[in-house]
Each structure stands twice: as structure tokens, then as C-alpha cells.
Design a binder for these strands. Structure first.
Lengths: 185, 185
DNA sequence: AATTAGTAAGTAAGTGATTACTTACTTTGA
DNA sequence: TCAAAGTAAGTAATCACTTACTTACTAATT
């Protein structure tokens, strides 16, 4: 699984072959099929790994924060950090969403995004009741914008071919987002 | 080219075969190679078509607007409209950006995004000097967020499998974005 | 303690399906 | 008449997956 994520950082995830995975592990291609029945099973295992790790990091970051706005910022930065550490992950997730047929792996990404959105929704609503965020904010739109901001940063990194830069640009993007939902003083 | 964009709306763009394109055009696969030397040449033609049309729509929308903020909104909605009309386009662009090697088509997407960002940058700076937008706004971060918002909406549509809904959710997302860069009264 | 049997993990060389692209030949229209 | 546009049947490469066989180790039986 670590090998697949590593390869996804170096090439188009949909073009990762079983041969490439095995070769990177210093194995022959056939050996891979002693441990996974199909290639799709490999992807399912990888997706499961990604989903659990990412959500755990997000939750951990949010738990430490004092206020809802601080929680959003911590979640944002934790996500950016996760992506910077594993540049192959967003590529894999995007790639899966491209599929039209409802494959098992696509559905796993769908549930991941759903769970992510629910967490955002909860924090935003909490921020509204606590008076930290504007009461007329559309929580759904804010969640979309939150995830979209990260996507935008990732895209910029893909364009520049520089994954490190994503960390430098993240605070600026989040600042605008927060200003867009914060209660005006 | 229209056929490719049509197919990209129905399946993973990277899995579109020359056979599928030809069949949709009621031709045999070989006939396609009378008009294009390679499959990549087809993609280059498609990308050129997309880039010129999208930028033209954006410029047209911006020209009609009275103020910079109105121009941003018009550009946003024009982009959303374009995507809703051609659901295959964002999938193609995302797919190209996934590539690691610097292919001709990837570079075309890169220039498209660069030109797009330059236009956004100009409008935002204009809005700052006219006092409509906050003077301390990071124009680069704002441009990333603008494009990211659209990506977020597209992703939501891909998740739901419903491209129409993107039009309904667009105003809410843009409202938060604008609030994030507008000069506080 | 020594032999035997069984098993998980590996290799190397297939297989059939699919793909972009080619070739030899035919049709069509100005 | 001739060139552009089309067809049908290739071709070589690549892919996921299979098969036949080997190796290293463990457990059970003698």
C-alpha cells in the first residue's frame, strides 16, 4: 500500500501497473497475486488506508483547537500537511472520482468525502451558534469551498510540479476563506 | 473534437480509445488516422478548442460587468455555465494535470490556467484600487481560491453524479468567496 | 531425532484481451 | 482521373491474471 502511494506521487495513478508495484517492491509481478486476488483489491486496501489515516489526522487536529474557527484552521493545515507528505493521495482521489461507473473504490472515496463534509458541517454550525461565524453562512457551500480551496492548492502544486510550495500558499487561501464566513465585527 | 468532449462526459477521459471516438462518429477506427497523425494530436486539437472557447466566454462575461466584483461574479457564472454545458471538460483538464511527464497537452492546460489566473489577477487588482475589494487581499491566493471553488463544485457534482446541481450550488460558494475579499464596510 | 507432509511465498513463462497505429485495397466526388 | 476519405484486416506492445514449478519453513508422525 505504501508502495502504491509512493508510485502515485510519481506517475498518473490510473497508469500504475501491477508490474510496476511488484518491481518497486523487488518482487515479480506474479508474487503480487499471492497476496491480493485482483488489482482492484490492492486499490481497495490503499483507499481504506488513506481514508482512515486522513480522517484520524483531521479529527486529531480539530480536537486540539479552542474555538470552531481555530478548529477549521487546524483541519485545513492538517490536511495540507497530509497532502504534502503524501503527494500521491490527492491524485488517487481525483482519479477515482473521474470514473463514471460506481466501482467499489469510487464509493470508498465518496464515503470519505461525505464523512469529511459532515465533520465540517458540524464545526461550522457550532461556530454559528457560538457567534464566531456569520449566522447566515450556507454551511454546505462553506464545506464545498473548504475542500475546493485545498483542491485549488493541490492543482497549483501539480501545475508547478512543486508539492512543497503548497505549504507556503495555504495560509493565504485559508485567510480569505475564513474572512468569508467569519462574523463581521 | 466535439465527439471527444461528448465521450469525456460519459467516461474516464484517459480510457477513451480511438476506436470509441471513431465508432461514435460512425467511422471505422482506421479512418480517424486519415485526419490525425496520432491520438495525441486529437487531444491537442481538443485542448486548443477548449482553451479558446473557455477564455472567450470568460472575457465576454467580464467585459459586460460594471464593477470588478461584478466581473468576478460574471466570470464565475460563465465558467460554471460552460462546465454545465460541457461536463467532460473539467474531467479532461484534471486528467491532464495528473500526468507527471510534461506532455504537449499538459503544457496546453498549464498555459490555459496561467492565462486564466492573469485575468483574475488583473480584475482583483483593479477592484483593490477602486476600493471595492479589501486592499490587503493576496491576489494570488484569491485566484487560487476562485479556481478552487469551481473545482470544489465540480467535485461535488462528480460525487453526486449530477452535473445540473452545480448551477444551484454555485451562487452560495461565490458569495462566501466574495465576502472573503470584499472591502469591509 | 529423523523423516514426512503441508503451507505460504516466491519465480518464470505463459494467456487472452485490448490498444494505438499500419497496410493494402476500395470508394467517392470535383 | 486522381487525390482525399474510407474500409478491413492486420501488427506489435502492453496489460491483468494464470499456471506449473521451486523454496523455506513448520508441524506431525514415526
Amino acid at each position: 500500500m505504501a508502495t502504491v502511494i509512493e508510485l502515485a506521487a510519481e506517475q498518473n495513478p490510473s497508469e500504475i501497473t501491477t508490474s510496476a508495484i511488484a518491481h518497486r517492491m523487488n518482487l515479480t509481478q506474479g508474487a503480487l497475486f499471492r497476496h491480493f486476488p485482483t488489482k482492484d483489491a490492492v486499490w481497495q486496501a490503499v483507499m481504506e488506508w488513506v481514508a482512515s489515516r486522513l480522517l484520524a489526522r483531521i479529527d486529531q487536529a480539530a480536537a486540539k483547537a479552542a474555538t470552531p474557527a481555530a478548529a477549521l484552521e487546524a483541519m485545513f493545515m492538517a490536511h495540507i500537511d497530509f497532502v504534502a507528505r503524501h503527494p500521491g493521495v490527492p491524485r488517487m482521489l481525483f482519479g477515482e472520482l473521474q470514473r463514471v461507473e460506481s466501482t467499489v473504490t469510487k464509493r470508498m472515496v465518496q464515503t470519505l468525502v461525505t464523512q469529511y463534509s459532515q465533520r465540517l458541517h458540524a464545526v461550522i454550525e457550532q461556530g454559528k451558534t457560538m457567534g464566531e461565524l456569520a449566522p447566515d453562512v450556507d454551511a454546505n457551500a462553506a464545506a464545498v469551498l473548504f475542500i475546493g480551496s485545498i483542491q485549488g492548492l493541490v492543482m497549483q502544486a501539480l501545475l508547478a510540479g512543486n508539492v512543497r510550495r503548497i505549504r507556503a500558499n495555504a495560509p493565504g487561501a485559508f485567510a480569505i476563506f475564513l474572512r468569508g464566513i467569519r462574523r463581521s465585527s
